[in-house]
Write a protein that binds this DNA or RNA. Structure first.
Length: 872
RNA sequence: GCCCGGGUGGCGAAAUUGGUAGACGCAAGGGACUUAAAAUCCCUUGGAGGAAACUCCGUGCCGGUUCGAGUCCGGCCCUGGGCACCA
């Protein structure tokens, strides 16, 4: 064994050992229980960042821990390889996205290997591989057959200069990211997946996801957004029938049918057909509608925007009173939710109230105020106005409580054919068409005669040409005749291939299934997926709490309905790791632009007044930079730490140890160079402890019966550490405290100076256990130290230890004594001592006597094995 | 506006079921070794008082429950995140 710890050599040797033995390749033919440990697959951006390191280390710790516990652990890895950054890189580097992406994958795979993750690399997949994305296309066709996929016009962001569709993230302050031109909204035909058909199922099943963090479950439930209410039809008034030239009704959705008699107007969205019809011979209304449609795309702005509206001149009839109600166009009504129209009840809805105040519309109170809380509905708005209560002023429906009123009104409406109870979801169907090149082609052929024709299964996959280079204007596929020119599968006539590609969320909705059977040539998944699914532990960022996880749940249900899978839910347990933060330093450059400095390039010194001053070098001179606090590591503020440099300097084990130790894995992690040094120092100390021990020669077998008190004490610490570490990793996922416990153990070993044969035997056990317990976190150094300690079976094949109950036993233990709840002393009592004995010992303690003095003892509380509280 | 987290030393944090607040680590100060530096090792380190023994105070703020509260309850303040005119 070498005296000094050479991380690079140790890691090379360990990785070579695992590779040669194919240690992490798994199959389905084993008696051991399976465990599917999955980390979210990365986008191949070029290099790993610290978020990746943290994510994959958490997964790897669990995978290795469970492997040692006897599970058949699958830990796969792949690449979310389609998407916009490859096109952006292509524009600036003039390299096809495919080439850029594959280079990045190769580079990042090597980086991952250097971190020593226990991955079965035979199962690697990239979503840009035709063998993978052909099954996106295949399932899309099945969904088309079932009516789960359909075509409809949708709104996109359009850059008028580049003549191209922009993704939301390419729209900056309402302008195109490249051209700076004002972005327009355009309606084009797109494909949608009917996720709303699964809304109820997806919502209800959230209750079964016991292994998911509560906040993720809440976020998903809110996103699906189920509302119980009524749809109500308001028939056109005679003047409106005349104006439009036909009879009809305006449908609205409401959760407050009990307030129907308080409706004093109708409000419809700008895109509502009734608004458009009214605008045909009303130029002012047309202009207003145009203004609303043009308005801000950013939803947060919409929410705070001033309410605006304009009367259409049309009227509808109240279903019970037959009173005519004016129809308004209002900018606060969303076309995409409910019916795109609402009944305006200003007395009991804040938005309607605000609108009515502005437009001088009448306010009619139809819910009785709660005792004395208010006398009448008047400005300013009072949240009590919206409370559920007893109806008044509502004809035959007066005097009913909320639910009774809703039931009665809904029943009466239904009898007249003017409404019914209905559930409305906030969730909308998933638009998957992207007018982009680097994605999975949608397998549709457009024929002038036959319409949109699905590509026959036999012609799959529709291959994406990999040699195109986008130039920023439009979709290169739409300019590539070799791609879009084709013949109609039905009539054989000339036709045009669909040039839109799929949203990359499609790719990531089922990749974890394909890992189970990456070579399945005849089907999307095969019986091996039944073995591995569901994923037992999924690990990833909270930023995917809604979309990715919801889409994957939906996709799983669709595949189950098609008989491809047996599970309803893909992920049994979900772990969301925290972000990695670092300091942000900025400086106003001479050109007026804000520049950021990497924290590694910033030096701190004490200023004249003793406060910290941060400085960085600019053109050879020092300038004072502004410390903007902590923020997520990202390119835009230049505060990233390169994992590769970290591994090169300290080794993978130090990188892994620091990221697991510095913070609980589900909370934010603040980067600290000193903390990294501390992790490296600990590993050197561990190495040195084993080195010293091994240098002293062979170790005698442990003779437990002959141990003295100090030896038994160290052994007890060893086995307590085994128990704590097992619980911390296995149940609590609290890796930082598991590491702290091993550090304490090593500190105890350091204080243990016994060099007699049995002393050395106890030390041997202590060091071996420290190495074993730490091995999921720092596998390379532990691999080497395990060998050095003389074990012939490799660490990777050694089972996780169990605490020895006998070693944990004690004859006496220390008990805390309090007087009136304040700590006053400690007593040592035999473990078998009964309550009376413990009580007597406590009262006999000198410190206790001092505080009790001559005051009468009112009560003594004894918590066995822990504490005594004397109440005086 | 609504829904979730979080608030504990100089810093990252620990305290798992209501039972010794601050484990473990970082930083800082002191010391050992060394020609010196690095590395390593040892000691101190929540605040106040005290020569010491020890005492008092202390987990964002106010109040409550309890023999006992960082932990439970009520009200507030600050902060991070998510959603956002969803009828």
């Amino acid at each position: 064994m070498q005296e000094t710890y050479d991380a690079a050599a140790v890691e090379r040797a360990a990785q070579q050992y695992w590779d040669e033995r194919r240690a992490f390749e798994v199959n389905e033919h084993t008696e051991r229980p399976k465990f599917y440990c999955l980390s979210m697959l990365p986008y191949p951006s070029g290099r790993l960042h610290m978020g990746h390191v943290r994510n994959y280390t958490i997964g790897d710790v669990l995978a290795r821990f469970l492997r040692m516990q006897g599970y058949n652990v699958l830990q796969p890895m792949g690449w979310d390889a389609f998407g916009l950054p490859a096109e952006n890189a292509a524009i600036s580097n003039r390299v096809p996205p495919a080439q850029w992406t594959r280079q990045n994958i190769n580079y990042m795979r090597a980086q991952m290997k250097s971190l020593g993750f226990a991955i079965d690399w035979r199962r690697e997949i990239a979503s840009c591989d035709p063998d993978y994305y052909r099954w996106n296309q295949w399932l899309f066709l099945r969904m088309l057959e079932k009516g789960l996929a359909y075509r409809k016009t949708g709104v996109v962001n359009w850059d008028p200069l580049d003549q191209t569709v922009l993704a939301n993230e390419q729209v900056i302050d309402g302008r195109g990211w490249r051209t700076g031109a004002l972005v327009e909204k355009r309606e084009i035909p797109m494909y949608y997946l009917a996720i709303t058909r699964y809304a109820d199922e997806l919502l209800q099943a959230i209750d079964t996801l016991n292994g998911w963090p509560e906040r993720v479950r809440v976020m998903q439930a809110n996103w699906i957004g189920r509302s119980e209410g009524c749809e109500i039809a308001f028939r056109y008034a005679p003047d409106t029938v005349q104006a439009l030239g036909h009879d009809g009704a305006l449908k609205v959705f409401t959760t407050r049918a009990d307030t129907l008699f308080g409706a004093t107007f109708m409000a419809v969205a700008a895109e509502h057909p009734l608004a458009l019809a009214a605008a045909r011979d009303n130029a002012r209304l047309g202009a207003f509608i145009e203004e609303c449609r043009r308005g801000s795309v950013i939803e947060a702005e919409l929410a705070t925007q001033e309410k605006k509206g304009m009367a259409t001149g049309l009227h509808v009839l109240h279903p019970f009173s037959n009173t005519p109600l004016p129809v308004w166009v209002a900018n606060y009504v969303l076309m995409g939710y409910g019916e795109g129209a609402v009944m305006g009840v200003p007395a009991h809805d804040e938005r309607d109230f605000e609108f009515a105040q502005q437009q001088q519309l009448p306010v009619v109170m139809v819910v009785r105020p709660r005792d004395g809380s208010y006398a009448q509905v008047a400005a300013p708005w009072n949240p009590a106005y919206a409370h559920h209560g007893v109806t008044v002023n509502s004809g035959e429906f007066s005097g009913l409580t909320f639910q009774a009123a809703v039931d009665a009104i809904a029943a009466a409406l239904e009898q007249r054919g003017l409404g019914r109870k209905r559930v409305q979801f906030r969730l909308r169907d998933w638009g998957i068409s992207r007018q982009r090149y680097w994605g999975c082609p949608i397998p549709i052929i457009h024929c002038a005669r036959c319409g949109a024709v699905p590509v026959p299964d036999a012609d799959l996959p529709v291959l994406l040409p990999e040699n195109l280079v986008p130039d920023g204007s439009g979709n290169p596929l739409a300019k590539s005749a070799a791609f879009y020119e084709c013949s109609c599968p039905q009539c054989q006539g000339p036709a045009r291939r669909e040039t839109d590609t799929m949203d990359t969320f499609v790719d990531s909705s089922w990749y974890f299934m394909r890992y189970a059977c990456p070579d399945s040539a005849q089907s999307m998944v095969d019986e091996r997926a039944h073995y591995w699914l569901p994923v037992d532990q999924y690990i990833g960022g909270i930023e995917h709490a809604i979309l990715h996880l919801l889409y994957a749940r939906f996709w799983t249900r669709v595949m189950r309905a098609l008989g491809l899978l047996k599970v309803a839910e893909p992920f049994s347990n979900l772990f969301t790791q925290g972000m990695v933060l670092n300091h942000i330093y900025s400086y106003q450059a001479q050109d007026g632009r804000k520049r950021y400095f990497n924290p590694a390039d910033v030096a701190a010194r004490r200023g004249a007044d003793g406060s910290l001053v941060h400085e960085a070098l600019v053109d050879g001179g020092r300038v004072v930079v502004v410390h903007e606090g902590l923020g997520k590591m990202s390119k835009s503020v230049g505060n990233g730490v390169d994992p590769e440099a970290l591994v090169a300097r300290f080794g993978a084990d130090t990188a892994r140890l620091f990221t697991m130790f510095a913070a609980p894995p589900d909370q934010t992690l603040e980067w600290s160079d000193e903390g990294v040094l501390g992790a490296a120092r600990f590993l050197r100390r561990l190495w040195h402890a084993v080195y010293e021990h091994v240098q002293a020669g062979a170790v005698a077998p442990l003779e437990i019966a002959s141990l003295d008190a100090a030896q038994r004490q160290l052994r007890r610490t060893v086995h307590q550490t085994i128990a704590k570490t097992s619980d911390d990793i296995g149940r609590r996922r609290s890796f930082n405290t598991a590491i702290a416990a091993v550090m304490e153990l090593l500190n105890a070993v350091g204080r243990f100076a016994d060099t007699r044969p049995q002393g050395r035997a106890v030390r041997q056990e202590a060091l071996a256990m420290a190495v074993l317990l730490l091995s999921p976190i720092t596998p390379h150094i532990c691999h080497a130290l395990w060998q050095a300690l003389g074990f012939s079976v490799a660490l990777i094949d050694t089972p996780w230890p169990k605490p020895d109950a006998a070693a944990l036993e004690q004859e006496v233990h220390q008990i805390v004594v309090q007087v009136n709840g304040k700590l006053r002393g400690h007593i040592t009592v035999p473990v078998q001592a009964d309550e009376a004995a413990v009580r007597a010992a406590a009262l006999a303690d000198e410190h206790v006597k001092k505080f009790v003095a001559d005051k009468p003892v009112r009560r003594v509380i004894v918590v066995p094995g822990k504490l005594v509280n004397v109440v005086v």
